[in-house]
Amino acid sequence: MSPSDLNSRREPRRKQERAVRTRERILAAAARAFAAKGYPAVTILDVAEAAGMTKSAVYFHYENKDALALAVTDLFSRRIGEIADSVEQLNLPPVGSVAELLLRTATAFRDDTVIQAGARLQLERQLIGVRLPLPYEAYTDLISSWLARKRETGARDDLPPPDMLATVLVSAFFGAQHIAWVLNDRADLVERTIALVRTIIPSAEGDIKLCPSAPRRC
């Protein structure tokens, strides 16, 4: 095979890789804009300037602002799923897994612009012209399954049913992240999260000590 033939075969793959990198750049810029300004205030020009490209280049990959919001929300959901997968690999006790998941999610809310943008877009979903995936359903189901596993061990506890407790934990956590965002840009969200777990599940202290992300008490 001649060098020219080899290059011609490689070119479609190179174009595809460039397109993927461009979409990633656009989504990163859109996430920063949505997180900082909210959906109504963001324009395609804002995203293009933040990404260092033209409006036409953005429109080539995303037909409008709604498509960008949906893509950022999908990326947000994938990131949350990746956090859950990373916790499952630790093989912590069930309540420890719940605490570690919430703590890692808190850290992501504090530090990850995509997570911040996804949460804000969910709050503004009524203003967006496409249907966004419902938030936190799989997240709640996973926590419920871990709590059910704890109950299956036969250990006595005074906890509510797993599905009810999972709903309370998720509601409390996402309410806490919103309050922390308004008050201090989520700077204390990890501390709020550990206090939340300790308050709702007082028996969790032993499992919390096994969590890599748990703040250590003096």
Rank of each mutant, 00 (worst) to 15 (best):
A71Y: 06
E88F: 13
A50Y: 14
A69C: 00
Q89M: 15
L75E: 13
K65L: 03
I83P: 08
E88H: 15
E63L: 00
Q89H: 15
G52T: 08
K55S: 11
Y59N: 12
N91A: 15
N64G: 02
L92D: 02
E63H: 11
K55T: 14
E88V: 14
N64C: 08
S56H: 07
V87C: 07
L92M: 11
S77G: 12
I80K: 00
L68W: 01
M53W: 06
P94M: 15
F60G: 11
A50G: 14
V72Y: 06
Y62I: 02
R79H: 15
F60N: 01
L75F: 06
E63I: 02
F60E: 02
I83K: 09
V72L: 06
Y59I: 05
S77M: 13
D66L: 00
L75V: 04
A67E: 06
A67I: 01
L90M: 08
D66C: 06
A67F: 01
L70H: 14
P94H: 13
E82Q: 13
L70M: 06
H61V: 08
I83S: 11
A71P: 06
A51S: 12
L68C: 11
E63K: 11
I80L: 13
N64T: 02
P94F: 14
S56G: 14
F60V: 01
I80G: 05
H61Q: 09
S86Y: 00
Q89I: 14
D74E: 11
G52Y: 09
S77R: 11
S77N: 11
H61W: 04
L90H: 03
V72Q: 10
L68S: 08
I80D: 00
A67P: 04
S56M: 14
A57C: 12
S77P: 00
Y59Q: 07
P94A: 07
D74S: 12
D74T: 12
F76S: 01
G81K: 05
D66V: 03
Y62C: 00
S86E: 10
M53Q: 12
L90W: 05
V95H: 07
V72D: 04
E88P: 03
K55A: 01
A50H: 15
H61L: 04
L75P: 04
L90T: 05
I83G: 03
T54Y: 05
S86I: 03
D74V: 09
E63N: 07
A51G: 13
I80W: 01
K55E: 09
E88A: 13
N64H: 03
E63V: 02
A84E: 13
R79Y: 14
S77E: 10
D74Y: 01
S77D: 13
L70P: 06
